[in-house]
């Protein structure tokens, strides 16, 4: 059986926190405890007008890729609610192909 992972397109992660909050709802997590947590890199200016500012959500060991939801034929909570539609779920081989096809600002997590 394939290993599954989470693919993040951080060109389009807008920092909305929906992954964090929907995960808390799904896993009934206490305040300050996260199944996935957003981090922020930047903003800083590399050359005039050329900015770097990325949000990247990282899953923690509380993430089981929403096994219960997958069993019901649903997407993981973070993938469903992501406002930028910047998250994907699937076998790592498939996700790796998507990463390569896009070619920039992609990261895959295998929690």
């Amino acid at each position: 059986m394939s290993q599954y992972g989470l693919l993040i397109d951080y060109e389009y992660c807008t920092g909305c926190h929906s992954c964090e909050v929907s995960c808390k709802n799904e896993k009934k997590l206490a305040h300050g405890v996260y199944g996935i947590k957003l981090s922020e890199i930047g903003p800083f200016e590399i050359t005039p007008g050329n900015w770097e500012w990325n949000y990247i959500p990282s899953p923690t060991k509380l993430c089981d890729l929403c096994a219960d939801r997958i069993e019901k034929g649903e997407k993981p909570a973070c993938v469903l609610h992501c406002l930028g539609l910047a998250m994907d779920y699937g076998p790592v081989e498939e996700l790796a192909k998507k990463m390569a096809a896009k070619g920039k600002k992609m990261v895959m997590f295998v929690p």
Binding site: C16, H17, S18, V21, K75, L80, H81, C82, L83, L85
Partner: peptide
Amino acid sequence: SQGRLCVRCLT
């Protein structure tokens, strides 16, 4: 919205 939802509705 296609399933997407912001934190104000999620909470």
